[in-house]
Simulated assay, not measured.
Amino acid sequence: MTTICLTGATDGIGLATARVLLGAGHRVLVHARNEERGRPVVDGLAADAAAGAEAVLVSGDLARLEDVRALAEQISALGGVDTLVHNAGVWVREPMPLTTVDGFETTFGVNVLAPHLLTTLLSDQITDRLIWLGSGMAGSGRPDPAHLGEPQESSRAYADSKACDVALAGAWNRRLPDVASAALDPGWVLTKLASSGAPGRVEDSADALSYLCTPVEAGGADLSTAPYWRGRRPIALPGRLRDPQLGDDLAAACDRLLGLA
């Protein structure tokens, strides 16, 4: 049984993906912002899971680095993971705070810095794969390693954060050569982050994400063939994100902001 930790799994694509993975018999660590939000979701998922599958609640506010560290400790105490999926994300709109408690622009803090820190803390416990959520907006992102976490207009901050995630997928492939790291463009899907005109279905995105989560021997994607996917097919990286140096520079910048050696 594969153990998969899925952040942001209480609604939208994350919740739908958790259902698919539990239906396939996996052990899913279902991340929620807090116990109150997550417990009813996990209880419902467990009731519908396949025989042998297991839904386990883990919690922590990704806008607080202290909580991210506590989340890593919870995952470690549960025996680590085969696959870590960075699904959680925000697009800042009022009344959401513009900066995190740690002083970073919120979109960057949640979408980029938190997953980078969580991956770092669990880097010796991830045995199979590491999945990041990109976006169709990643191609228009222009993240600058020298100015990460600074205030930005909300749509620019989101595009830059998704470009960072796609680039970091490649950087972590180089940092953890025994772990397959890739990013998924889930499409323009009607979730709480999208406008009402989004044409995509959450179920289709969940099918793609669960495919990337699943080991090759269980019928999942061979991530060694490509670093970026849409649906169940590889796609080309957006122009600037093809440069491995950018990913390495962004990862190093995140290290500096986190005070990591």
Rank of each mutant, 00 (worst) to 15 (best):
T2L: 03
L6G: 07
T7M: 09
T7Q: 07
G12L: 05
L15F: 04
A16V: 02
A18D: 00
G23C: 00
L29K: 07
H31Q: 09
E35V: 15
G38I: 11
V41P: 10
A47S: 10
A50K: 14
A53C: 07
E54N: 10
V56E: 14
S59I: 00
L62V: 04
L62G: 06
R64D: 15
R64T: 08
A70F: 13
L71H: 13
A72D: 10
A77I: 07
A77D: 15
T83Y: 10
V85N: 04
N87H: 09
A88F: 12
V92H: 09
P95E: 08
P97A: 12
L98M: 12
T99H: 08
T100A: 00
T106Y: 04
T107H: 00
F108G: 05
A114F: 09
A114N: 11
P115Q: 07
D124W: 01
Q125I: 02
Q125A: 12
G139K: 05
G139T: 08
G139Y: 02
P145K: 02
H147V: 01
G149L: 07
Q152I: 01
S154P: 15
D160P: 04
D160S: 10
D160M: 06
S161Y: 03
S161L: 05
K162V: 11
C164P: 11
L168C: 13
W172F: 15
W172N: 12
V179C: 06
A180Y: 02
S181Q: 06
L184G: 01
D185M: 01
D185I: 02
P186Q: 02
T191Q: 00
T191N: 00
K192M: 00
L193M: 15
A194D: 06
S196K: 08
R201I: 00
E203M: 01
A206W: 04
D207C: 07
A208N: 04
L212Y: 08
C213P: 00
T214D: 06
T214W: 01
P215D: 12
V216P: 03
E217W: 10
E217H: 14
G219N: 08
G220M: 09
A226F: 00
R230S: 14
R230T: 03
G231E: 01
P234K: 08
I235Y: 00
P238I: 11
P238F: 11
G239M: 04
L241S: 04
D243L: 08
G247E: 06
C254E: 13
D255E: 15
D255P: 01
G259D: 07
L260T: 08
